[in-house]
Structure formats: C-alpha cells, structure tokens
Design a protein around this nucleic acid. Structure first.
Lengths: 263, 263
DNA sequence: CGCGGGGTTGACGCACATCAAAGAGAGTGG
DNA sequence: CCACTCTCTTTGATGTGCGTCAACCCCGCG
C-alpha cells in the first residue's frame, strides 16, 4: 500500500485516490476533500508512509451506504469516525415505545460518531436519509499502533473542539423559540451547512421527512408543514416536496432572529 | 518552583498544593481534586518538572470568584480552560434587547470554556452564581511552549470527547418534553452531577434563580415555580427557596421518563 | 390499476406564556 | 430593634400557540 506515492493534497481533487469498490454513481453531488471535516486527518495519513508504523486500512474511503441503512447503532462499541462524502444522515435515539427521537442531521463534509470517542460506544444510531457515501477513520486501529501519533492528536483535538462549538450554537435556537423561528433557523442552517460543503445555492433539497424535522426541532410534523406553507405564502421561500428555494433569505433571517421581520 | 517534589496525587487531598492567595473560606464545600474533570491534566502538570520545558504558571489553582463576577465574556479571545472547585457558574448568551439566554450550568468538578478551544474565542459569558473558586489551565501558555505535550493532548482529547458526549445527552430531554418532564429531569440531573463531584446527597441546593432555570429549560420562571410546588404537593420533593430534598427519587425519575409515574 | 406512506389542511383543546399583584427574605440605614 | 427597599418567588386570571385527531391529497411502487 504505497500511500506515500500519492499525489499532493490539492491534486486529490481529481479523485485519484478513489478506491475501486466505491463511487457507485459518479454523477451524484459529492463534497470535495478539502471541504471535508476529516480532511486534516486524511492529509496526515496520506503523508505517513509504511515506515510510520501505521497499520494499513486505517482510512477507508468512499464506502457507499444505501438509503435507510445504519452505519452504527446505539450501544455499538466505538470503532470509527465517519465523514459524509455525499448524501446525508440522521442520528437518532430509538425509544422503545413510540417514534425515534432525531438528534441531528449530517451533511456532506460533516462528521458522524464524534460523541462516541470518549464513551467508547455510540450513544445513538446513524442512518442514511438517501443513497450516500462516507469515509471511515478506524480509530481502533489507530490506537492499536502503539505509536503516539502526536500530530494526528492535534487534528483530533481541533475536530472535537469544533464539534463542541457547533453543538453550542445549536442549543440556543432550539429552546424558547416559536415554531416559526425554529423552522426559519433550521432552513437557514441547512442551507449554510450545505454551502459550507461546497454544495447548494439558493436552491437545495431537504432530504429528511417532515416528521424527522419535527422530531429534531421538538415540533409536530403538521406544524412543520403548516409553517412552511405560511413561509411560502409570505414569499420567503418556495417549497415543494423536498425542494427548497430561498426567495428572501434576509427576511427569513430576520424572522429567525426576532420572530417578526420588518414588523 | 519545585513542582516535581510535590506529594503524589492521592496525597493532594490534604490540600498541600493549595496556593496561599486563595481559599478565602476554607469551610465551603469544595470538590476533591480526584473528582475534578481537570484532574488528569493537573496530574500530568504536577509530575512535569522544570526540565519539561513548560513555562511556569500554566495552572492557576483555586482562584476565588465573587458572586456575579464573570470569568470571561462572549467574544473574549480564548485563553484558558476553567474547572469549578467550589460554588457554581452559569454560561449565558447576552441578547441585546431582552433577558440573557442561559446556556448551561457548571458545578464543582466540571469544566468551563470548552466551547472556545477550537473557535479561538469564547462564545458565551461565564458568571458565578455564588462565591466560588476555580482552577485555570492557561492553554495559551501551553502552546507557547513549543513542546509537543503529547500526553497532555491525550488528556485533552479525552476531556473534549466527554464534553461532546455530555452535550449529546442534554439535547434529547430539552426538546419535545412537557414542562414537568423537563423540570424533573433537570432536578435529577443537577443532583446526579453534584453527587459526581462528591457533594450532595438527597438534600442539596440549587444556586440558580427560577428565571435562570426557566431560561435554560425554555420555560417561564412562573412555570418553573408552579411545577416545583406541584411536585412538592405530590410528595416527590421538598423545596423551599433554593434548598431541595429528594423525597421520592424513583417516582421523580419515572416522571422525567414518561411524564406520568404509576399512572 | 389499487395500495401505502408521506404531506397538507382543518377543527378543537390544553399546556404553557403573559400579565398582574401580593408575599418572602436579604441587605441597608435609622 | 424595626421600617425600608430590592429582588426573587409564588399564586391567580386570561389568552394563545401548537399538539392532537382526523380527513383528504399526492406521488411512487408493486
């Protein structure tokens, strides 16, 4: 496995390191490596040679996942960190009697499984919302290699720190806001995150169902639906099915902030 | 600075490394070092000698903080991680027009400032709810010393990972639950966290105001008050002022779970 | 073609916010 | 020691946002 002979990081855009078994639908929208949260770690692993003492197969690139498939379940021992390359995922907390509680959504370029790092097991289930592909960093193999991996550690710290900061930004909008504020914030948040992955423009698609959104935001799916049509009637967005077009992002943002735009 | 001559970790219980300038009220309840989230890092720093290349003053122990005092404000550049030794803190998001939004509470043994690690600045303000004391790990000085600090990094990873996992557990109960469920869960959570710090029994004290709790849980302070008296009438707890006694923790927990105990 | 799951829309009721006012401590000064 | 204020808490009365239930619609799939 001659990783060290691979081309430099920016050249990777060409897809030269795409392993044969994957990329089942090459035309699907996929995040570029440089927009991926895992990229800092990928780079380091790319440059590490056989003499680094790293066991091979630490990084599995672009595995494809079918819609509805779970890449791990609540309680599974923590093995890997995943990065979404294309498609999208939800993380959820299965509740014995009743519908699952949706914890979060994961878009291209974002990580899945971070919450398991310290606990040693996953605290939620991750399920694909559509045909997707992921890269997998096998942490277990990383610690197997006795090697300290100091530079990698710095990357992991960075990555965990960002996750903490991100969670933090999510907490505020979810509480104490009206349904309209939450949904406006949600739409804008999804848009912004898609853009961050180099995807999406004013026109993008929400891959999750209304009840997923509702569960995530703490609202009934009917309320989500009602508010969205209300937004549409106001000319803030155009929504049909899962397709969303931001017609007036600024007024939508004002809405998310204060609950009333240009009152 | 002969740190390396200090006694071993468990002996620290005796308080031999308490610096002179602090501990203003020796009789206040204080978390033991071994119950502190920062302890793993403290230990490492304790054992590091002058030859480690560490600049002195990285760890400031037991600084006292007055009630209402802020240890950092939103937007301040990230400098330090703090651990609560005694007392308690709230983190909040100041909103220009209107009351501040409370993000979280921090009890003895817990960390403050973690969300600033990656961003490079604090995303919220941390304010003491009562006379408190803290230990401060000056991260800026840590990176100043060019030294890799590999073992410390492992500690930091652990610590960040735990934070992520903790945030994760908080998300679910806050959404989609009735006021009664949230408050029951909140009381139990506070109790459990105090116990984890070696403090608290069935009888403990909530240092934050009703409006702080309300802001945190997304409820009006009146609702918090009402529900608490309701719990009291049901014999689940005894509450007067900030004092709480758990009378029937099991039924309270059942309440937090399903909204109705022994229906 | 009929079926089934997700989405939309309407009617109704309740949980909780809001407004208001009175009560309870804690600190201050006479 | 008692009035005083200030803040926090409690309690009541009233309104409303959103959950719930139910019916219907739409689109994809066998």
């Amino acid at each position: 496995m001659a990783i060290k002979t691979w081309p430099g990081p920016r050249a990777r855009k060409a897809g030269s390191n795409c392993e044969p078994r994957s990329c089942p639908e090459g035309e699907r929208k996929e995040v570029e490596c440089e927009d991926c949260s895992l990229d800092p770690l990928c780079l380091l692993l790319d440059y590490a040679g056989d003499d680094s003492g790293l066991p091979p197969g630490i990084l599995l690139r672009r595995q494809s996942v079918a819609r509805g498939e779970s890449i791990f379940r609540k309680g599974d021992p923590f093995r890997s960190l995943f990065a979404v390359k294309s498609g999208s995922f939800k993380t959820l907390n299965p509740v014995p009697d009743g519908p699952d509680q949706v914890i979060g959504f994961h878009l291209p370029g974002e990580l899945i499984g971070v919450e398991g790092v310290a606990a040693g097991s996953y605290s939620c289930t991750a399920r694909a919302l559509e045909p997707s592909s992921i890269c997998e960093l096998r942490m277990e193999r990383l610690s197997e290699s006795g090697r300290p991996m100091e530079i990698l550690q710095r990357g992991i710290i960075e990555l965990l720190g960002k996750e903490v900061a991100f969670q933090h930004t999510l907490k505020t909008p979810l509480i104490r806001q009206s349904a309209e504020q939450r949904i406006a914030a949600f739409i804008l948040n999804m848009h912004q995150r898609l853009e961050q992955g180099g995807l999406g423009g004013k026109d993008f698609t929400l891959s999750m169902s209304r009840s997923d959104i509702g569960s995530y935001l703490g609202l009934a799916s009917e309320t989500v639906s009602r508010v969205m049509t209300r937004f549409q009637k106001m000319g803030l967005v155009t929504i049909q099915r899962k397709r969303v077009i931001l017609e007036d992002p600024k007024r939508l943002a004002a809405f998310a902030e204060s609950g009333w735009p240009t009152k």
